[in-house]
Structure formats: C-alpha cells, structure tokens
Design a binder for these strands. Structure first.
Length: 309
RNA sequence: ACGCCAGUAGCUCAAUUGGCAGAGCAGCCGUCUCCAAAGCGGCAGGUUGGGGGUUCGAUUCCCUCCUGGCGUG
C-alpha cells in the first residue's frame, strides 16, 4: 500500500496566487499552512514579503512565519529542521498541512534533504573570504577536483562552502552531496503548481508592487532601520528592502526605486518558474483560473491521493 | 529667429592626435546541496539621427537637414 501523503505542496511564481489558493484549500480541509518562504521568516518584514495578514493568520494557522528578527540570519538548514518538526507534529494530530511558497531551494531542501555535513562556520568563512577566487579554486582543485570542475573560479560563495566542508570534515563536498536526481520523497506529498502567461504575471507584479508601496512599505523599512540600524545579510537580500534603504538614505528616488523593484520581482518570478518546472510529478493548474475552481481541483487531487475517493 | 550643446544597443554612457564600435543595467539561456527574493557562467543586441562631402579608411573632420535641451531676442 502506498504511503498516504501528509503534505499538500503548492508551488509557483511570486504574485501568482499561491497564498490565496492555500488559504482556500486550508479552510475547506480544515488544514494548516506551512510557509516555504525564505523572507517571510523575518519579523517586521511584512508588506515587502507579502506576508499573510493577521486576519488570515487568525483564520488558518500558519507555520514558519516570523521565526527570527530582521537583523538575524536564517538558513535553508534551519528551515528544514523546523519544518520537519511541524510536519511530524501536524501528522500526529492528523491535520492536513499545505506547504505553499516561492522558495524553490527550501522545497528542494525539505523534500529532498540537504547532505549530512557541517553547518556554516563564520570563522572559517571569514578567513576564506579574504582570499581571491582563483586561489580558492586552485586549492579546491587539489582537495576536490570533481567539485572544482563544477564550481567556477568566480563563484566565491560556493568555493568557500566546498572548502569549509573539507576543512571541517576532511572529506570532499562532492563525496558528501547526495544526488538531487531522485524523487522528492522525504515527505510524501501531493504537488500542485500554478502556471501563468508571462505578460499577465508581469502585470500582476507591477500592480502588486505599487499596492505594497501605497500600503506603507517605505515606512515599514524605516521602522526596521530605526530598530536595528540595518538588516542581516540574509534579510537584506529580500527584493526591495535594500532599494528602500537607499531611498531613505537619499541615494535613489522613489520612482526609480519602484521601477527597479518591479524589475527585480520579474526576475525573481522568472527564476522561480525555471526552478519549479523541473520539479517532478507536479499537477499544473492555470493560475488565472478562479481560486474556487483551482481549490476544488486541488482538493479532488488530495482526496484521490489519500484514497478518500 | 539667432547662438551654443547634445543625438552611439531597450536604458545610461565609453571609444587615445581619423584606424576592426565597447561597458554597465535590462532581455534571453544555463547553473544552484547550510546566505538562495542571494550567488555564478554564457548568449544576443548597432545602417553610430538622415543625406552628402574630404580620406586608403569617418562615431571622430566639413556641409546640410531633422530631433531634443539650454541661452539670447
């Protein structure tokens, strides 16, 4: 007998209606939502990350939102650890869990697993960061030729990680990394994706960016800056916040910032689409269809997979 | 109307005294295993505003027209 899925995964590009669909499905299945989003984990970064409202969070329980302060660091590994706990606990209660979000890396890590290895070591990284990419690449070539072949000499971030793993374990990273070609089966799940016509999605992105600004995104950034003085390196990677920090510092005009945010968001959507379309066994639905229609289709898939015909 | 400045890739700009027209950003493709809304690699992109002239050779010098900006009337 096949394993009954305990998770319903909803993937798709930003501004594509994942949250609305997840809400609709969660309400009908009496389920809870697991946010698979690398930026909604930061407290106070609400408007810019399109975080669900307090009303929505009151109606349906959300997990993996507001995990740390905006001046702290959050990682894929920490996401997996926390999400594993949420899935186990919801499973024990018999509650359906809807994993929805736009961070492909987190989906990969959660359902495929990260390799067993050492975590980040800031001291080691700091030391390696001082070296040139060429020096790092040469050194990696000596201890792990296979990884050196894959990682470009300019890709300092990955060179540092590979050398960090070698220093900490004495084993090459290429030997430790498990294959990501296998099915995404760490947690049995039903996979649903939303597809979009690109120009239609771009229209939605432009509209949403404008709405976020009108809702007070710049003020939100100002509050974070007053509170922390700056965002952590990871939090600052969120689209938009860095532009607003520059805007508040008088380095860029409001309209220019908005334009750049629209561009960055379009690029984000493009990258998400490219990652997600390689995920196996996804039931793709038209994102432009009414939420009710898609919710019904998703619930039907879910019931079938669970043998609840 | 006259004078000055500018016009080069979708955008912002480069191009030694005339010598194969380049870069950043955007776009497209790819990559991604503890920072991933990040990072990295690649590709494509032009009748140099139009027309004429000088020259072996013009984005560059000359003439003319067009467009935009500034100044004076």
């Amino acid at each position: 007998m096949a394993v009954q899925p305990a998770v319903l995964a909803i993937i798709g590009p930003t501004a594509g209606g994942k949250s609305a669909l997840a809400m609709a499905v969660a309400e009908r299945l009496d389920g809870e939502i697991l946010s698979v989003d690398s930026m909604q984990v930061y407290r106070g970064m609400d408007l810019g990350t399109a975080k669900p409202s307090f009303a929505e969070r009151g109606a349906v329980r959300h997990h993996l939102i507001d995990q740390v302060e905006a001046d702290e660091t959050f990682t894929a590994a920490r996401f997996v650890e926390t999400a594993d706990g949420v899935i186990a606990e919801a499973g024990a209660r018999g509650v359906p869990l809807i994993a929805a979000g736009g961070t492909p890396m987190y989906f990969k890590a959660l359902f495929h697993g990260l390799f067993e290895g050492p975590g980040a070591d800031e001291a080691v990284r700091e030391r390696l960061r001082a070296e040139t990419g060429e020096a790092l690449h040469r050194r990696l070539g000596e201890v792990d030729p296979e990884a050196a072949l894959r990682i470009h000499a300019n890709d300092q971030r990955r060179l540092i990680r590979a050398l960090e793993v070698f220093e900490l374990t004495g084993r090459p990273i290429s030997e430790l990394q498990t294959t990501w070609e296998a099915p995404l089966d760490r947690h049995p799940a039903v996979w649903v994706g939303l597809t979009w016509d690109r120009s239609e999605l771009n229209r939605r992105i432009n509209l949403r960016v404008r709405q976020m600004v009108e809702a007070g995104w710049i003020e939100e950034t100002r509050r974070l800056m007053e509170r922390f003085g700056g965002l952590s390196a990871t939090a600052a990677e969120a689209t938009g916040y860095r532009l607003w920090i520059d805007h508040l510092g008088g380095r860029i005009g409001r309209d220019d910032a908005i334009e750049q945010i629209k561009i960055a968001t379009r690029r984000l959507a493009s990258k998400q689409i490219k990652w997600f379309r390689r995920f196996p066994d996804v039931h793709w639905l038209d994102g432009a269809a009414p939420v009710e229609t898609n919710a019904e289709a998703v619930i039907a898939l879910w019931r079938t997979a669970r043998g609840e015909g």
